[in-house]
Amino acid sequence: MQVKCFDQPAELDLYAAQLFASALKEKPESTLGLATGSTPIGIYEKMIEMYENGDLSFKYATTFNLDEYVGLSPDHEQSYARFMNRHLFDHVDLPAGKAHLPKGMVSDLEAECANYDRMLQEQPVDIQLLGLGHNGHIGFNEPDEELQGGTHIVELEHATREANARFFSSIDDVPTQAITMGVGSILKAESILLVVKGADKAEIVKQALQGPITTECPASLLQTHKNVTVLVDREAGRLL
């Protein structure tokens, strides 16, 4: 595991974007695992700048997102499909139909989970972007006595819904369920990029990277992967 600490968030975002650009230059048909939330927004902004400058192309790429809320349509203001369009897809040359997210509005959620796993098996992820939740979740894999390996439906913890409530009118509007890639699916990626920002994440960063490997801190399972790069700002990494 390689850990890099940055004084400026913009430097971190640029470094992360350059890792994706390098992957696409080496293998233009790469499969990219993408994430949502506040953490990757700056990274996506750098990717868009690189695309506009002719330094990055998604023309032959495929993307898979980690998760989606259950019950939100793709055009809902707070759906992750809408987030990805707003912050990346609408601004680059990723072909229509090459961006994949779990579908949270289907009638058979279990079948959707199985279908997502089939697609991931057919097109394994080359580089997976992750953020880190305050409770150690990656994707929407919440702490538990045991974790599911494949894509599955998860009941969102109150703390997770509370953290995401800032994007909704109130916590009552935050969905209670999501579809997420499982930890097993995440760990199948050829390489993993974990990005963490902010002083409020320092404790969980230390626990995830240096604490015991336990399902009670899902991110700690990243310690078992052969190729993980961790990018933290100075505040998030202050306890390492």
Rank of each mutant, 00 (worst) to 15 (best):
S185G: 09
D126E: 09
S30K: 06
G182K: 00
S170G: 05
L94G: 01
V232D: 07
E162W: 13
V183F: 05
K4I: 12
N164S: 11
G37F: 02
G54D: 00
L24R: 06
L231K: 04
V70W: 08
R166P: 04
A178L: 05
A96I: 10
F83M: 01
I204M: 13
I179H: 00
L193K: 01
V183P: 02
D117S: 08
E112K: 04
G133I: 05
T151A: 07
L19K: 11
V70F: 02
G104K: 04
I204C: 03
E45F: 06
L120F: 05
G37C: 04
Q148V: 14
I179C: 01
N227E: 09
E110W: 06
V106K: 05
L129R: 05
S185M: 12
G149T: 08
Q8E: 15
L109V: 10
L221Q: 12
E190S: 12
S38E: 15
H76K: 03
R161M: 09
V230K: 10
A61Y: 12
D173G: 07
G149L: 08
G237Y: 13
Q2N: 15
P218N: 09
G104A: 04
G97Q: 09
L147V: 03
A202Q: 15
R161H: 06
S38Q: 15
A61R: 12
S169A: 15
M181V: 04
A16Y: 00
T224M: 12
S30E: 02
I43W: 01
H100Y: 11
F6K: 09
K46M: 05
G97A: 05
A165L: 04
G198N: 11
T180M: 07
E155T: 13
H137R: 01
E29T: 10
L120I: 04
A202P: 07
M1G: 10
A99Q: 12
I127L: 14
A199K: 15
F89Y: 15
M119A: 12
T31S: 11
V195Y: 07
A21P: 06
Y44S: 00
A114C: 10
Q123P: 06
P175M: 06
G149V: 03
D90L: 06
A219I: 06
E49D: 09
Y116D: 09
Y60P: 01
V232S: 09
E203F: 15
V205M: 09
A178M: 03
N227R: 13
L130E: 06
K197Y: 11
I171S: 10
K201G: 10
N141L: 02
D200S: 14
L101T: 12
T62G: 05
D67F: 10
F83C: 03
Y69H: 09
S191T: 09
E110Y: 11
V154D: 08
L240N: 11
P175I: 00
D55L: 14
I186A: 04
V174S: 10
Q78Y: 00
T36Q: 08
K188Q: 13
S191V: 00
Q207S: 13
V228I: 10
L194Q: 03
L94S: 01
S30I: 02
S57D: 02
E122C: 08
M1Y: 13
Y44N: 03
K27R: 15
D126W: 01
P218D: 10
L56F: 00
Q123G: 09
A23P: 00
I171D: 07
S107D: 15
E216V: 07
L129E: 00
A16K: 06
A114I: 14
